[in-house]
Write a protein that binds this DNA or RNA. Structure first.
Lengths: 252, 252
DNA sequence: GCAAAAGTGTTAATGGTACACCCATGG
DNA sequence: CCATGGGTGTACCATTAACACTTTTGC
């Protein structure tokens, strides 16, 4: 779907789209990758449509691959947005008026759309902000606390994705996917504090994490900081997967 | 949609359905409400289609209201089933052959369908197993451990609903909706043991539950049992809602 | 040597686990 | 009076929360 001519609606599941909330972690902030639409001052989540011959989940992966160039990303369905208000959108008429959506496709774009929300976790530095296609002209990270004007309910989708992330911090491999291979304890803690939006005690955090036995000391330290050099850790994949499978605790 | 003539596909969202996994608790078992399809030996989840003018969530509620006669039920979206294999179904051709699906609707029923899974919690005794409509001839509770032959991926949907129930036992009002207004501690424990599929210590369970402060002693006892009469409790709605909002514990 | 942030230790309170004993009820 | 299951107590252990001191690094 690199340009207008490639886009063909004849084989698509009618009225169904997928949208991906792509989380990255940088500068102690959660960031979301957004696309700037052509000809209007609004941003959108990377999304796409569903071929009638493709799994819905596979199409979400395809969005990340084709639009952002990402493969083998942690990606998880979290909610279907199916209310009616989301179709009172104003951007489609504008895009049609501005010639971004071809007249042949108007009927397709004017359908009532339902969208499946996915959240994805990627290492911030691995994404190059370059993708452009027939409908978007820029691709940039935005802090979750400072989002630009967005189409339809995309802000609400991001909010719900963040809530889901908070809930699933202890049952999904969130640290693993948002951090580089090697990281320090304070970096891991900063990620947790950012996702949870609250401060944690440094000493208790460290002990608890180490007790889970999911971290491997690499015997290296992050150098060049103007204070005591912190230890670099990696995840111990075997123990990590075990811990994720069981959840990190359970009440009953 | 009480009979064939009422069914009109012209205003429906194409290729989208909703299916409800209705949980009840009886005789220390989790039970699921299933519909027996006309003319074939297969059962199905209560489900329906989505009007293009209706919220998807509202349509799930409508299924419960129109097909089962239930209103104000706890109902929650849990997953979108969108793989391709689910459309290699064999029951639609059979239903067409047997005249259950009118020839005018063949094109509609042969589409590729994606379904949104909902789970619902109801007090077992409140459901009368009576509903019949143009496509189903019986409506019965089945133990989750002894399910009959079911169409497409409906067994898989039930499995995933059960997994979700287990996970959400501490963040969703599960006890509240599956039990009658008044219940005993052993009954509540049996529900937990059933959902979680494991035994819990009677004494510790009781203490822990009471410590949550979500139960009110009604000063009554369940009479007519051939042992010490157990105390009847009710949920203290204010504290209960608070506890649900926070989750019953959190790690961080 | 000073500021900044990292590493580590202790203690008290809380909550969980694993037990055993007594009590009320119907038959 | 006995079998059945309900209510409650206690002791031990693990986990958490709150807090302070020492160490390393760049400047």
């Amino acid at each position: 779907m690199r340009d207008l001519e490639d886009f063909n609606d004849t084989n698509l599941q009618p009225g169904l789209s997928v949208d991906c909330v792509l989380f990255g972690f940088d500068n102690n902030e959660l960031k979301i990758l957004l696309l700037k639409l052509k000809s209007i001052e609004k941003w959108a989540l990377p999304g796409g449509f569903v071929n009638v011959d493709k799994d819905v989940n596979a199409e979400a992966h395809a969005v990340l691959k084709n639009r952002i160039g990402l493969e083998n990303v942690f990606l998880k369905q979290f909610y279907l947005f199916g209310n009616l208000e989301r179709n009172l959108n104003t951007h489609t008429p504008e895009l049609i008026k501005n010639g971004i959506i071809s007249t042949k496709r108007i009927a397709f774009f004017k359908q009532r759309f339902i969208t499946v929300g996915y959240y994805a976790l990627v290492e911030y530095s691995k994404v190059k902000e370059t993708t452009v296609d027939f409908i978007s002209e820029a691709c940039e990270w935005h802090s979750i606390h400072n989002l630009p004007k967005m189409i339809i309910d995309h802000k609400e989708i991001i909010l719900k994705a963040h809530q889901t992330l908070k809930k699933e911090l202890n049952t999904e491999p969130i640290g693993l996917n948002l951090l580089p291979k090697q990281f320090t304890m304070p970096e891991l803690q900063a990620l947790y504090e950012t996702v949870l939006e609250k401060k944690l005690d440094r000493r208790n955090f460290s002990r608890k994490m180490l007790n889970y036995n999911i971290l491997k000391d690499t015997n290296k330290r992050r150098m060049g900081v103007k204070h005591k050099a912190p230890i670099l850790y990696e995840f111990d994949m075997e123990n990590y997967n075990q811990a994720i499978k069981n959840g990190f605790n359970s009440i009953w």
